[in-house]
Amino acid sequence: MPDAMGFFTDTTVCIGCKACEVACKEWNQLPAENGGIRELSGDSYDNTRRLDGIHWRHVRFIEQFKGPYDGRWLMMSDVCKHCVQAGCLEVCPTGAIIRTEFDTVVIQSDVCNGCRACIAACPFGVIDVNPVSGTAQKCTLCYDRLKVGLEPACSKACPTDSIQFGSIAELRARAQKRVDQLKAQGVDAHLYGADPTGPLGGLNSFYLLVDKDEVYGLPHKPQLPSRNLARSSSFSVASAAVLGILALVGLRKRRMDDMGGAGGRVGGGGPN
């Protein structure tokens, strides 16, 4: 069994070149949006804007400017987190979403029927429908490349090693070293998703961030969709029981009224 593999993304060295986005699109033969006619976002140099069924990598530009000379750019190459406890895998009704031998999460496009339950289940908004296939799609962590010993296309293309690929144990050690180094320089850095005892059992694609999680578009405490299952089901059963009792009490009352009104004679036909 191979080691669990994944990505460590050090956002402090991302330069926003989007080489990872291009490499991902090229390797996975993802179609262009809007027939290749790019619509500009109008309020950012980032025109991809988000992850979806045809953008499995997205370099997020976070433009924090208080004035013309007072600001900073934060950049983060975002991707599927390949959660150790994956919400998408949990709800998928066709078995299309599987965990691979590399501990990554992959959607089998030939099994998926496009019900879109995984889209609503993902706490990170990673998955969407690919309009060409009609199925839900996302990063596969280049499963086809991993099978033949190759590195994923995005990390291979990253010119600054902001995206690092490797075994999770090794990446976590490297990430902690980098956090310590930045803290020694006075930078308030922290890791997101590196803790195996944290939310979702840790993420196999984790990040080094220098601002709040939400600033990067990441939920502070992502959760599994099944957290609501037991309570929601029991409330529904209770509501069904109440309605059933009300219906039966209503029938009994009608029968009692019949008996009272007719001096003991049952009206309106015999018992069913």
Partner: peptide
């Protein structure tokens, strides 16, 4: 159908466990 919505990570739907009971009533 309501439980289905609650067992997601979407705003409103996943923020309450009452949708199943509501749709049933």
């Amino acid at each position: 159908t309501g439980i289905l919505l609650s067992v997601t990570n979407r705003p409103i739907w996943a923020d309450s466990p009452w949708l199943g009971a509501l749709f049933l009533a």
